[in-house]
Simulated assay, not measured.
Amino acid sequence: MKIGSKSLAGAVAGAALLGAVSVIPAHAAEGWFESHIDSWRVQNESRRWWDNNDTWDYTGIYFAGCEADGGDGFRFADLRLWKVVDGAPDRDKGNERNYCGWVDYGDPNSRGNYYFELTDVSSGSFLSVDYVKVAW
């Protein structure tokens, strides 16, 4: 079977588009926000977001452009997901290691306010991330 130059060009363009779209997972249908991180230390927290739990989508955090101030550079950041509980300690929803990509926490299966906290950074004291996407 012979592929014409237009068909080949279309196939290559389609593959490139598919690759570009799949870089940042968009599985979460209920909501999302984008941000960045400048010089975070351990125990710094993200903004809060409300999850109605209208869908069974996972809660995920995506990082791109990660830097740490230590001599070994960035290797990972440990992030803990929390659910806000008024009048009581916030509920721990799990810790995930982010290697400057996407991490999923599963379906929190509970409506409420959520945030994430930096619990460890691989090298140094400060974490900076050019692009952060949180989706739920």
Rank of each mutant, 00 (worst) to 15 (best):
P89T: 12
G4P: 09
G106P: 02
H27E: 09
V85H: 02
D57T: 11
D107C: 02
K133H: 06
A20H: 07
V121L: 11
A29V: 11
E34F: 00
G101Y: 02
D38T: 14
G65A: 06
N44D: 15
F33S: 11
D86H: 09
L8N: 10
R80K: 14
G101E: 02
S46T: 07
R91V: 06
E34G: 12
D104G: 13
S7Y: 03
V134N: 01
C100R: 04
A13D: 12
V103T: 06
D38Q: 11
G101A: 09
V132S: 02
A68Y: 00
G65P: 05
L79K: 00
V12L: 14
K6S: 15
Y58H: 13
F116C: 07
L81M: 08
I37V: 15
C66S: 12
Y62M: 05
A16E: 12
D72A: 12
A11S: 14
V132Q: 03
F116P: 03
G19A: 12
S128I: 05
V12K: 13
R48T: 15
E45M: 12
D86M: 11
G70A: 04
P108S: 08
A16F: 10
G70W: 00
I61Y: 00
L17F: 10
F76Q: 05
T59Q: 07
D107H: 05
S39W: 04
N52I: 02
K133I: 03
D57N: 14
P25W: 01
V129R: 01
C100A: 07
S22P: 00
G73M: 04
W40L: 05
A9I: 12
K133M: 07
A13N: 13
R47S: 12
P89G: 07
D51N: 13
R41P: 00
G65M: 06
G73C: 07
F74C: 06
V103L: 01
N113W: 13
C100M: 03
E96V: 13
E45T: 15
P108L: 00
G71Y: 02
D130V: 02
F63I: 06
S122P: 06
A13Y: 10
R75W: 03
G10Q: 14
W136L: 07
F126D: 02
G70K: 04
Y115V: 08
S7L: 14
V21T: 13
K83Y: 04
